[in-house]
Nucleic acid binder design. Structure first.
Lengths: 165, 165
DNA sequence: TATTGTTATACTCTATAACTATA
DNA sequence: TATAGTTATAGAGTATAACAATA
């Protein structure tokens, strides 16, 4: 069989699209997401579990509503995540005595330990994903992304304006 | 009712996560995607339509398989996209006389005109999404993302190594 | 009546796998 | 038999809305 295009010209994304930063953001963000899902899954977790544990380790104890709001998750979705974390003994749910509708969630010792492993996974993912960039470039990228994230989602602000009363 | 946290501390994403570049990439990429979907939809299109038209305007005519491979779309998914574009008279499908299994797809004049509008939407999206960054920063970000995209997906390479026979 | 957590439902997207017509 | 396009099916993921307990 004689192919019509001898070196079989590799299919390319049109540079019209490659010229668009938001197109690249979508593409690269998607690739990062897929890569992360696969890596967390090998450890029996998802990035969502990591997010919940990380949040609780900084602001624990908290109610489910606060966790969902902070991370931008649906409350129904969070229920399942907490079920899984609780089943592994990484978090605890208790009724709030002051408002018995609420559940107080808190990380356990095992949860803190698991968080350490998840941090390792995240660091390894960063390292692998950013391999074409040197140290300075990674910092630059991170800074620019942080500013975009903060602009499009106030919850991603690092230092909330310390309101002094 | 007296709230326990008087200024109602705003829910924040843990900085553990904000310190991870791939986390930011996922978040910002998602935000870009949602924003883009909404904007294209107002014009009666999706970013996928734009991608197909952009590819055809650079490499037309092509077969459906080539389009799908270049853009990374599933072939079944592409059928629907082409149906919609064809219905609007923006592309044409014809059987390839040399291989009657294949469909030759090509942009119409109306398709080229529509592509112009879609380019405008993409440019406006870029401008709006990157508003916290100045010109130099946007260029820097674009360059870094382009290198990541190219590394994780060879189809995103701008200049394919010109194979001289 | 409004809210918290929960459960159930529906809807979207995607991935898989038949199916046809050609080769 | 294998491939291009098409269609149909199933699965994951997400969003919506009903629900019970409490305020």
């Amino acid at each position: 069989m004689v192919p019509k295009t001898p070196p079989a010209a590799p299919p390319r994304v049109p540079h019209d699209l490659l010229a668009s930063t938001q197109f690249l953001l979508k593409r690269v963000g998607m690739a990062a997401k897929e890569r992360a899902l696969a890596e967390y899954e090998q450890a029996g977790f998802s990035p969502y579990h990591h997010a919940v544990l990380a949040f609780l380790s900084e602001d624990s104890p908290d109610t489910q509503g606060e966790i969902a709001d902070a991370l931008g998750y649906d409350r129904g979705q969070l229920v399942g995540l907490l079920d899984e974390l609780e089943e592994k003994g990484l978090v605890e749910r208790r009724r709030d005595p002051d408002d018995r509708r609420r559940h107080i969630v808190r990380v356990t010792g095992a949860g803190t330990k698991a968080l350490g492993r998840l941090r390792g996974i995240a660091a390894a993912l960063d390292d692998e994903f950013l391999v074409p960039l040197d140290g300075d470039e990674r910092e630059t990228l991170h800074g620019l992304l942080a500013r975009l994230a903060e602009h499009h989602d106030p919850r991603c602000t690092l230092q909330p304006p310390a309101a002094s009363p």
